[in-house]
Design a protein around this nucleic acid. Structure first.
Lengths: 212, 212
DNA sequence: TAGATTGTTAATCGATTAACAATC
DNA sequence: TAGATTGTTAATCGATTAACAATC
């Protein structure tokens, strides 16, 4: 968990620093960054120290040099490329979305039965082509946007095709392997969780009223 | 963090137990559940004990009675209802998605300029109506599917409308308040994180090769 | 210099795991 | 009974925070 979390924080530092930079700031304190990200200044300094990002004991950190270091750490080789598997509602929505600001773009979509040849210049191919496409274009990351029932099989096909990372939107936890890392985003579970947490809050507040 | 995580686990227990039940199992061991969810048997037993879910020292847990207890804990008052704000690509995709299996349904969508009057029988209203709608229908949870620039303002409008929980898909972290809890799902960040983790893996493997 | 902030170490905190006695 | 599994306590682990000396 450590690794995954600290990595995410590095990305957040980068985004926040870009924002600070666009606002004209050239120096920043661990304090500011912590506040902006909702974490402690200690943690910012610890993270930075761990990745040999150095500051100045008087004037804080230089926005530019931190960004430089972060870019070299994050492997800032321009725009990344990813593919989508599953051209239903969610798949189409993702195709239509512009992720260039986020640092990557969707180059193709795959489906057992492509509903169209292309959407917004992005081609939709049958699944059989996936493996070749991944090889030829050196794709490493794919998104699963297929229904529940097809997800497990799709995952395995994608791993066999040589993909190294998968973001899964199907409503079940797919497992990672050493060859292929899977992160799961379960929208339904997140919503249900909110209902549950609110329910809990209400129960606690009612209890608190009783106690008076 | 504890609370959020253990709650999510309770939901996962429930889903997994429903699956076991549909497969005809009536009793289950902490062992089985742990394996299925990728956590330790100890943790399952600890979670259960914490919520007074009791098992039998010989025969494990009764699927039905655990489910009963979970349902009463999770406040299983039938199908929950949520609304969406933002009727772009993602908003439309979510409207079209059927979440009944996940325990809730979308009852309405809101947009500053509704592109259509309804989609799949789900009405799309102008933002001005949100507050009244939330009050009249006792809605507690909403989904943000608006662009980056509109997100912060939208969040505040939703809180003022009386929503208690928000799932945010806009690419920035919105903050929670005591009145309104926000969970952020940043798709772009998740994808970038995968690229980054793969990059790290490659660096480590290259290093390992060198060390030979 | 005095003041402020980093870099780093030690303390804290919480979650997970291991171990084992209780017991069905 | 013997065996197996829970329930619970203690140990571990890792991440975060607090504190403070170093230093710009």
């Amino acid at each position: 968990m450590e690794h995954k979390d600290i990595m995410l924080r590095l990305l957040k530092y980068k985004r926040m620093l870009l924002q600070f930079k666009s606002m004209g700031l050239s120096r920043i304190f661990s304090n500011n960054l912590g506040d902006a990200l909702g974490i402690s200044a200690s943690l910012v300094r610890k993270d930075f120290a761990g990745f040999r990002i150095q500051g100045n004991r008087r004037g804080g950190y230089s926005v530019n040099s931190v960004l430089e270091r972060l870019n070299s750490l994050l492997g800032d080789q321009g725009l990344h490329e990813a593919v989508i598997v599953g051209c239903g509602n969610l798949g189409k929505a993702l195709i239509n979305h512009d992720f260039t600001r986020e640092g990557f773009r969707i180059t193709a979509c795959f489906d057992i039965a492509p509903p169209e040849a292309e959407i917004k210049r992005i081609p939709i191919y049958p699944m059989e082509i996936l493996k070749n496409y991944v090889r030829e274009h050196h794709i490493t990351v794919g998104i699963i946007a297929v229904p529940f029932g097809a997800a497990t099989q799709t995952r395995d096909i994608m791993e066999q095709a040589g993909l190294r990372g998968i973001l899964n939107f199907a409503p079940l936890d797919l497992k990672s392997t050493p060859q292929c890392m899977v992160h799961n985003v379960n929208i339904g579970l997140e919503i249900e969780n909110l209902f549950f947490l609110i329910h809990q809050q209400d129960k606690q507040r009612q209890q608190a009223e009783k106690d008076l």
